[in-house]
Design a binder for these strands. Structure first.
Lengths: 218, 218
DNA sequence: ACGAACCCGGACCAGCTGGTCCATTCTGCC
DNA sequence: GGCAGAATGGACCAGCTGGTCCGGGTTCGT
């Protein structure tokens, strides 16, 4: 659990090779999300990706290197799914729509499976420093979208301008991750709903001074 | 990962035997907290507890049974540590003292290691239904202490009486768990501080004025 | 005292795990 | 066309993992 994050000599890679590599990472990401990193074997990855042992070790030095690639892919996946909601975020209504999408998403799965990043974080953070750094950077990047949105809300006067957007973003992120965990344990979307409602309600409360703003659409 | 939670025939147990059993569970709990359940081997437990393979399998049918015992012990440990703060909780100040104790606790460890229950939850919740049920019950029990405290705050008029204490407790618990995860990834107590501050600020806000409709959650 | 039942030590094992290796087939490029 | 290097298949392996087993010591109840 101590491999590097950067590819060693930036080897050549044909289009076919890139495709194979991608199939491997994708299969590994799915398996690890479902069964955990420790609970996923290299043989399982080989079978699920329809490749062979030699290919796996051709593209990845060892399991740690594969895990690193998986973290990066999951980070990209999550951001891809969140970006449409967060990119233009500029109102509390927008945030509430984000909340609704998440609650719906979890409700469909009856709470099964955790956050792709959160579950990796919980398993790897104490066991691999490079993984921890990567995961932490992912959280930061993710929060920066929320912070940017909150800043826009402040400009509109929906949120108290004296509050620190980055700190609020961290608080919302914590509510999200904690809500996910509790929803997973309860097999219900309700804890997530309550957690995000609490966090969002907090933003509104900060705005009570100069409210009565004409609430434009997000 | 599918063993039962109840001991089969409630076997006899001498004082000496109970002591040995306890040493095993204690060692297993520490190892699993540090290295995860999957990352802890039975041989490690044997060595750390100073016992032998036959003893381990004398007291526990298999690894799942041991994990069940570990969950119960960790639940007891956490509650034991929290009870002094939560037992008499009846004011926002008291809640803030609770927050301070937690932040200090995490700060000492520089964020390393997660919540004893939270990390078990993340790893086991999707992999073992009996474990999930046990863990969920632990969260419920834990939240009930918070809820009772919030109810007392309502009686004192510190918190809006129309808010549901159980729902607020779930929100605070989510902030706690999420804050823990982010603090672990960031190796800093700050995310936990921000998360709990956000949650507590929310209670206060509810006390200032009875705005905001009761929010029928998902 | 004395048998039954508990407690204990540790050798042993089948299956799995991450990882190696080599022989063969493609592919990009001059 | 032909070669260097990438891509692939899969047999193979040493060490580990959860779990078994048996023989002997200790304690309990009567």
């Amino acid at each position: 659990m101590t491999s590097a994050g950067a590819e060693p000599p930036a080897r050549r890679l044909t289009a076919r090779g890139a495709l194979t590599r991608d199939r491997i990472v994708r299969a590994a990401a799915d398996l690890m999300h479902a069964n955990g990193v420790a609970g996923t074997t290299m043989d399982q990855v080989v079978e699920a990706s329809g490749t062979s042992k030699s290919q796996l070790y051709h593209y990845f030095e060892d399991k740690d290197a594969l895990v690193t690639a998986v973290i990066k892919m999951q980070a990209a996946r999550v951001m891809e799914r969140q970006e449409p909601h967060l990119e233009q975020l500029s109102s509390v209504q927008g945030l509430r729509r984000w909340r609704d999408a998440i609650v719906r998403f979890i409700d469909e799965r009856h709470g099964a499976h955790g956050c792709e990043i959160g579950s990796l974080a919980s398993e790897l953070t104490d066991r691999s420093e490079p993984a921890r750094i990567l995961i932490n950077a992912t959280f930061q990047h993710w929060e920066s979208y929320l912070a940017a949105g909150i800043r826009r809300m402040q400009e509109r006067g929906q949120v108290d301008a004296s509050a620190d957007p980055a700190e609020l973003a961290t608080g919302i992120m914590a509510a999200y991750q904690g809500g996910y965990l509790l929803s997973q344990a309860a097999r219900s979307a309700q804890p997530m709903a309550l957690a995000l409602d609490l966090a969002i309600r907090n933003l509104e409360a900060l705005a009570v001074h100069q409210d009565r703003a004409p609430e434009a659409a997000s």
